[in-house]
Design a protein around this nucleic acid. Structure first.
Lengths: 158, 158
DNA sequence: TTAGATGCAAATGGTTTGCATGCGT
DNA sequence: ACGCATGCAAACCATTTGCATCTAA
């Protein structure tokens, strides 16, 4: 898995500025794609709609693929991966390495952290500033911090 | 990748109690294996020696495999994986999901966190209590925290 | 002797790639 | 029309599994 988190966004305008959004999903998604410099194609529109149409979500490629299929949107898995990565590069999504085996994509790109439910492999946002990283550690000489990931692993109480 | 972190150790005795260790690597490893209830076989001895013979380390299966090969220790990759997981189950190692693509095994099983150097895919211990998780978040009803993982992602300064 | 350990090779699962075809602009 | 997007299948990589063979107790 490659984290493109350090790459510059395609456009200089902040990808999270959704001020243009009106409430009409199709118009919104098209505007959003234009804003970040991605061609509003059929499948990108549909995936954007699925991803951003219902609040904050944590999805794997496979999940989104099934959802698209269920919604009768014809998309190949390869395109799902492409789209997920492109959206991540422009800052519409954030990739999370919770469990090592698969990549999760979070529609919430604000700074926040996660619960990870072992076994169920489910990812949950930790509300608010519920985890305070007290003192940010000093990086080694010559390095700078790109991100701090906190994953609180959970298991069902016995 | 499956985290066996919730599994009980094979023996009730604390796996990290290395009080029996003397300084002689071979004797030490044998004692360590006996202590956790694992048969001291040729390859487990060799791998234990490679893993614990030189301070705290962060290894992937592939790295350990190459190291063993270089050291003229005949081991198959499958055995490397088996051994790494067994050692983890008994608490001699800790599995870290830094980058999502491969599993790292840390010989330091004490509570601590990591730097992850993007690109180089290198894992470093964050010294001391250099990251303080201020307020541990309240887990959802019915769940308990098994572990808190903090990964500070780094990139070379421009 | 015998349960457990090992090695090999094949199977898996998630993800990526190459290339011919399709579709926005 | 042009060039980026898409779909498909094959390629990839880390990891796991099945099974025959070995080996520590």
């Amino acid at each position: 898995m490659v984290f493109p988190s350090a790459k510059p966004a395609v456009t200089p305008s902040p990808a999270n500025d959704r001020s243009e959004l009106t409430g009409c999903p199709w118009h919104d998604v098209k505007a959003m794609l234009r804003q970040v410099g991605l061609r509003p194609t059929r499948q990108r529109m549909a995936l954007g709609w699925l991803l951003f149409g219902k609040g904050d979500r944590h999805l794997t490629a496979e999940m989104l693929y099934e959802e698209a299929t269920r919604a009768k949107v014809p998309v190949s898995l390869a395109t799902i991966y492409n789209t997920l990565h492109q959206f991540t590069e422009v800052g519409l999504l954030r990739q999370v390495a919770a469990d090592g085996s698969k990549a999760y994509f979070d529609t919430n790109t604000a700074t926040h952290h996660h619960f990870f439910i072992e076994g169920a492999d489910e990812l949950l946002d930790i509300p608010g500033a519920d985890v305070v990283v007290g003192r940010t550690p000093v990086p080694p000489e010559g390095f700078e911090i790109t991100r701090v990931d906190v994953v609180v692993r959970l298991r069902r109480k016995s």
